[in-house]
Design a protein around this nucleic acid. Structure first.
Lengths: 189, 189, 189, 189
DNA sequence: GCATAATCGAGACGGTACGTCTTGTCTTAAC
DNA sequence: GTTAAGACAAGACGTACCGTCTCGATTATGC
């Protein structure tokens, strides 16, 4: 891709920054290609040249600032899981972060290609990290042998996601701890 | 509600039918108010008069055809849960039904009012039915006293929802059974 | 055309007025559909709904304000022709009027349909009026029988048009009179 | 002009040839700088380096292939004029040649500088040649002393130009002869 | 004959305008 | 008085060109 070599990094940054700024400030409906281009001081074509759709711009913008969740291994499985679940619940509960997640979720529902990218680039690494922590716990006999670890990860995150999207209850520390407890109960020998 | 008294039932039906037809046939992006009106042979104003946004039309259309899931109580908790989870997994796994769910999910993410309505009119009844079944089980000592039944319901549906939306694995009977098993493990005395 | 019955006359006027204003104020390159719409406080679609191209808007705007040249018949053929030619030369010589003529000419060269319309709606009536004056003169023996009156009209206007477009000499009263004289010389018995 | 010394003649030829080819093949609206560059296999900058605007490229392309009209002097003024007018009418009547003339005319209406260049480089030589022929005729008493020869030239070409641009009648030999006759009538002693 | 400086093809860039689409409101005529 | 039809203002869509700019890679002198 020799063309990409000519890509103007300044423009790229300006576009991603403008996208993040708009996501943070306004309704997602106002995060249009035109608004991004205007905010970034960039021609629309420069966006269309490098991304096929708005969702991909949003993804790339979010992917760059995503901090890989720190996954503790203190030896105390219960404490570690509580910490992970609390962090997740806090993220979904924060209206600010929640807005960008919402944006990305809308795009994923609309575009299968994008859904794959989001899954593989943003989510899988996080889910795999948790699964690895559970695998270590299983080695040490803290989890029953028959437990399906991928499913266990879904047991941890699925309910949070569900509650967030359906606004079906509070997203607070108490909820996080109760959830962690029930997941542990499902996994214990 | 005097206006409603004058409401033309034929138009209402035509609009909802057109909405369902478009949802089934085309991309959700093509399900526009204009397309619905044209398909239903109805003026756009007739839609705007009775619904505030497209999402509400979609919701009403889907609500009418939603069959309340039959919740068995055979006395065998494991069997009953497996059946419920299998039905849920099958519904999300069916591309046809999945399309309308996707449509509604997009609208919920965009419109808080609508999210409430969907939650209260479509989902809560189903979730409550499951919770009631679990409550009965708890009465009979099949579930430990400390279990949080609302959370238990989320443990059942959250992972399915998560996997569906993230396209993060197969949605089949085997998965349904494994999920039901883990949920039961979390609840048993 | 029942649809046309619904046409909003206010919008139509605003569009034509905005077009005339822009033609008078700016380079023709800046007379864009977007500029007209913005100036008229009108959606672009409202322009595209009623006109196929910019040239047609310009034509309609000009056609409405075109005053049918007063064609005198004083009995004195030479005086009458001088007056007509002087008026024509003055019009082409005036930078202001010249700008709109230039605009229309560009459009005619680009669009055959429009050229026909301009010819039939704006120009032919004027040319015919002159021909009729010449016909009256021929009746009275002031013009030789063999003269081709359509050609005579072209002899009067063609040189002015030619000189204007090629900027090939001054467009003043002296020139007008000389031209009128030569045309008369070509027609006299 | 040391820079010009480095000019790549191959590129220049490719650009002018591409321009002529596009003029001949497509609508003038499609004769863009980008299209010329692509067709010529040349960078856009190479065009902008040597010409200020598209019109100048078109002019240069046309100037190179313009054959200077042969102006006969058989001694028979009427025959000579008829021949010139016939040739002119034929050129404007030919759709092929007409297309390039149209292109150039559009540019002239848009760009005063270009208009001067076209007038001086392409048209004046032709008009002067005709005027010189008329001057010779006047020497021999075939034209009245008071005739304005520049105006006479305009009397010959103006009507053709007018009729062509307004599509106001046929451009054929019969017309040419009638025009020549009337012009002669205007000039005769 | 070698350095060096302008030219070259290519095409990214910030812009402007295009012509189309949909939104939600407003107007009209028919029933 | 509600309807179907659709005009309307607004504004985003994705595309096409504009004229400028930056890249390496040829040239073609002129030292």
């Amino acid at each position: 891709m020799p063309a990409a070599a000519r890509r103007n990094e300044q423009s790229r940054r300006a576009i991603l920054d403008a996208t993040l700024a708009l996501l943070a400030e306004t309704d997602y409906a106002k995060v249009t290609i035109e608004a991004i281009a205007a905010r970034a001081g960039v021609g629309k074509q420069t966006i269309y040249r490098w991304w096929r759709r708005k969702g991909e711009v949003v993804l790339e913008a979010l992917a760059e600032q995503a901090m890989p969740m720190a996954l503790p291994d203190s030896g105390d499985l219960e404490a570690d899981l509580r910490q992970v679940v609390r962090a997740t619940v806090a993220e979904f509960g924060d209206p600010r972060l929640s807005a960008t997640t919402r944006a990305l979720t809308v795009e994923m529902l609309t575009d299968d290609d994008l859904a794959e990218q989001v899954r593989d680039r943003l989510l899988r690494p996080q889910l795999h990290a948790v699964r690895d922590r559970l695998a270590a716990a299983r080695e040490q006999g803290q989890i029953r042998t028959g437990a399906d670890l991928d499913l266990a990860v879904e047991l941890m995150f699925g309910p949070v996601f569900h509650r967030w999207q359906l606004r079906n209850g509070p997203l607070d520390a108490e909820y996080a701890d109760a959830l962690a407890d029930h997941v542990l109960a499902a996994l214990r020998p």
